[in-house]
Nucleic acid binder design. Structure first.
Lengths: 198, 198, 198, 198
DNA sequence: TATGAATGAGCATTCATTCAT
DNA sequence: GATGAATGAATGCTCATTCAT
């Protein structure tokens, strides 16, 4: 088969996932019909099943794709060699999330994926892996911050990474559900919490 | 006269919701069939539709019930007159969430409700109301903490309430998805974060 | 049982039939639900089944009642001893039908009964009996008209009675479906047809 | 390309309508189940819904089809250029109706359609249109008869067309319900009515 | 190869009827 | 008696998937 294969195939797959994501953002995984995905993608039913074995397969691909794109921007943050104060990093990350939520469907579908993980163990595996990536990125960033003295030497890096990931999830949910959270004040609140309790 | 008393009617309704919650915890809202709910509840198809007009109605009742029960314990915390350090309160609340998640279906279904809010405006309204309640409880607690000097005078109470709610949501999601978060270390991390960056 | 029984029972039965007729005029026999009849009658489900064994029974009672009331006025016409010209009688009868159709549900439900006769042999029997009554009335009237010289001596009384009944049915259907037929011009047309063709 | 040609699609549609007509002749519109239609047509449930959006759609298509076929033969009668005596034409038309009723389901279903017009405004529109066609055909025939002197010059063509349509409906109903009407004597009775009343 | 019509099990919901109170 | 909540088989319809063309 000399036709331009793998590259073209991947492109079509992505185009299909993009169409499916638009549908899922509107109706959720299980109220989205294959018929809707087929119409949105402009492909034929047969063609779709040439790229994915089943609707479940598409759901899994969507989950992976969408969570991957949530993570993508975060990775960029960590790549930099210069240490960043964790809360500054958080503000930046929350800003990226707010941007994604304002402009597109990804965060809405990410929430769907978190819910779906509760009933499909494969999706659960994908989600776990993606969340682990985010935590790893945070751990790296936090370590560098601690080395730079931007974080107390006694800080529990693992727990803090969990807290940072949790902040992202909590912020996103409130952004989507309440629509009244702002990256700057949200991140700043962590600072005000500071001296408290001691 | 075989007329149902309001009390009996409410009891049956709750019994039905409880059965439906068990189903939804397993399969999510839209993969749960009425047939499954009927079997789980031990009622007949017709009887179920005597209590709820449609599956959608049940979904909404579940969302309200489940989010209400997530909130219930929190309210208890705020009722106390004695000021509590916010992070101590958080640890306590996360502990309650972990307990609920370990012992029952409520938190799993709460996640479903958050996702469903993205496609059913009625559920979105219910969720907004319930989340607002949680924030209000936090605001009250935070105000009292600030008055007692357990919180910096400059603290942004509204933003902090958002952060506290977000912490609950982020903790719960990670509890369900990763299974490795612990109330004590999670809450403690907030403290270690505190001084940082300044 | 010293309670006023038979009389009261009949009254309640008629009240029930009246309610059911209102429903059937709106939705036809088979789109009318027992629930609707129960609501319209103000009785309880159990009570209704005390008067009629089944929905089918009600349908049959309605058919009989409604066709009986279509016939009632016709009988009055024939009772008179004085001979009437057939076409004058027809105009009068069509006028009565138009009045019934304008003011109430009976003719609409009569059409339902004719249709139902195609699938329920019991209703077919009721309809046959009622139509036979109408024909008999016409036969009597036509005989008297022939004796009085208002009708040709060679007239086929049986066939003419069929034609008169047919005229009533055809007029009613057009009144209900087209709404543009008038008793006077409709009857008059029979006269203009008369001499023709010979 | 397995695309259906318009021709094939229409053929399948008609086959489906034919199957549905057989069911409706037996049980009426609303006691005919989709399941019965599906079985009778030999198609699958899904296929049926590829041709018609709903059961209501099928009912409407049946109404149009059946009333159209009642009309078809009438049109043929009018096409002829030679004037026909109205009562001769009537006898011929009643003969066609009797043939249709003896051999097939069409007239039984036509009666269903007239009844259904009382509750579905779309069916009512279809019926009105089809009845108007019949009247138009009669008007044309009557005009030609009047020109040829087969009808009194003073005859009210519109009213006579109503009477002719009414005769067809009344004859058909009696054919189906009583089974004792004959085209020849029925038409002849109109003649015997002739001199009467003057 | 790509198509889209066909499949049919499965879905949410209805409703005539019953019977415990 | 009278009530109306409960029953559950049956209904109209959907939709993930297949496969003849």
């Amino acid at each position: 088969m000399p036709r331009l294969t793998e590259q073209r195939r991947t492109a079509r797959r992505n185009q299909l996932i993009a169409a499916a994501v638009r549908c899922v953002a509107r109706e959720g995984f299980h109220k989205t019909t294959m018929s809707a995905v087929i119409a949105e993608s402009g492909m034929s039913a047969g063609a779709v099943y040439g790229y994915f074995a089943s609707k479940n397969d598409i759901i899994r691909a969507i989950a992976d794709s969408v969570l991957g794109r949530m993570t993508a921007n975060l990775a960029r943050l960590t790549e930099g060699a210069t240490p960043v104060a964790p809360i500054d990093a958080l503000e930046s990350v929350l800003g990226q999330i707010a941007d994604l939520a304002r402009d597109g469907d990804i965060p809405r579908v990410a929430v769907q994926a978190w819910a779906e993980a509760g009933r499909d163990e494969v999706v659960a595996g994908i989600v776990r892996e993606r969340l682990a990536q985010v935590r790893n990125a945070w751990r790296e960033l936090l370590l560098r911050a601690r080395e730079a003295g931007l974080l107390s030497a006694a800080a529990d890096i693992d727990a803090l990474a969990q807290v940072m990931l949790g902040a992202m999830m909590g912020f996103l949910q409130q952004y989507l559900l309440m629509g009244d959270v702002r990256p700057d004040s949200y991140a700043a609140a962590y600072r005000s919490l500071a001296g408290a309790g001691e």
